[in-house]
Design a protein around this nucleic acid. Structure first.
Lengths: 242, 242
DNA sequence: TGTACATCAGTGAACGCGCGTTCACTGATGTAC
DNA sequence: TGTACATCAGTGAACGCGCGTTCACTGATGTAC
């Protein structure tokens, strides 16, 4: 009954009447508030009522916008992954440069540490991410693969026979659509795990008091990885292409 | 008044009367319970009352053993670091082998993921670890330094000039007591961050569904690191020493 | 343009719950003489 | 060995609190004719 007769409906099915527009804006503001609150006390301390109060509303009002507290959090996790996926795709689209992609990832992490930890931090035992999030995570992986696969020979310089791990990957490459060589897959995994290691320890504050600049450690790890297995960028030319 | 006239006191000042012995045992059991509960729902969900109930006690009874819930958690964090420090020291004492040390670290992490995340996972904003914990963390770092420093030239094969990051470390090496070379420090940092990256992504479940064996990725990273910067163990002899 | 109606954002009261923590107490255990 | 006393682990009631969530409601906003 009372079907809308005007065409406030876009191609994607989203309504755009004045009420819908207002709804979308308030939803965004609520998330904004939630992020701010999480940055202060961590994700597990996120309180539905507290967010409402900070919005100038009473608690129950939030149920107009999110089905439950868990729904809000899931939405935030999804937004975090979405944001990372978009950032990485933009980097790859600007040119398949793994170094640029690495720096984009670190910049994204530094911009909002809690957002980074929401995606890659301590998991809640028993919680399983809905499929939608898994799909966005796959996009992230696809960007990394694209950055490396576009380079000649997957970014690898002249090299020897396959390592045991590459041989192992030969039989487990479904996650890469089968387009990349085992050597490239191994490279991408090193890229991901090393950058995550350096960035997460930095963000968690494990380097504070040690004096060195985490940005330089990160750059050094990137150099190590990208100048060929084990040859640093600075010494690559004279040493490894005789 | 009523000073103990017997000598139920050890060299370290700990009393060992029957009551003190009982106290220590119950304290240990409470921690045991807390660990179990944390493994099920995460650290932030640790409830004082729930632990007491699982112990067959009422909530207030726990205050005989821990000053507060925060005190309990701090104690657990301290025990986690203590356990890691002991594990690593044992490995280094058995011989300064970085590969063995790396495997010991991973085994320690796999044995209790929540324990690993309590030490290296998402930090609680605003929380600062007490000095005692920082001191134990320094022990962990010392073991890593010892494993690498004991190798000839800090475990480095023939190599070129210092990289920019090593030059940077030259001016920021207080955290290593000044005993190790910048090249060794850089090596230790790579060791730590890479292993943390691989292990934490594995424990957080980010590799599930990808098919490959995380243990092999870990071993490959260790190989990469230990066979010289960028030269894999398997191909080192034929490929890079012309 | 004006009127009648439907929609729906937000309120305020209330729900049951589990939390950390305090307090005065009881009763068992160990200690001193 | 027996008795008087001090210690202290654990209880049960109570505290105030904030949580997520429900419900019936009001009043403003947009819609249809």
């Amino acid at each position: 009954m009372a079907e809308a007769t005007n065409n406030d409906t876009q191609a994607n099915g989203a309504k755009t009447g004045p009420r819908e527009r207002y709804r979308a804006q308030v939803r965004a503001e609520i998330k904004e508030c939630a992020w701010r609150q999480m940055a202060e006390a961590g994700a597990s301390a996120l309180s539905f009522n507290a967010v409402a109060k900070q919005m100038g509303m009473t608690g129950p009002a939030l149920y107009r916008y999110f089905a439950s507290r868990d729904d809000l959090i899931t939405e935030l996790v999804k937004d975090a992954y979405r944001s990372l996926a978009d950032t990485m795709r933009a980097s790859v689209d600007a040119g398949p440069d793994p170094a640029a992609l690495g720096h984009a990832m670190r910049a994204w992490a530094l911009a909002d540490p809690q957002r980074y930890f929401l995606a890659f931090g301590t998991p809640v035992p028993g919680y399983h991410a809905p499929g939608e999030i898994t799909r966005i995570a796959d996009e992230v992986m696809a960007s990394m693969l694209a950055a490396f696969a576009a380079l000649p020979a997957g970014g690898l310089p002249a090299r020897g026979p396959a390592t045991p791990f590459e041989t192992h990957l030969e039989g487990h490459r479904e996650w890469a659509d089968g387009h990349a060589s085992p050597a490239t897959l191994r490279r991408v995994l090193a890229f991901w795990t090393r950058l995550h290691g350096a960035v997460s320890l930095e963000l968690a504050g494990h380097f504070t008091g040690m004096g060195f600049d985490p940005a330089r450690l990160f750059a050094a790890e990137l150099d190590d990885l990208l100048a060929g297995v084990g040859v640093r960028a600075e010494e690559a030319a004279p040493a490894t292409r005789p």
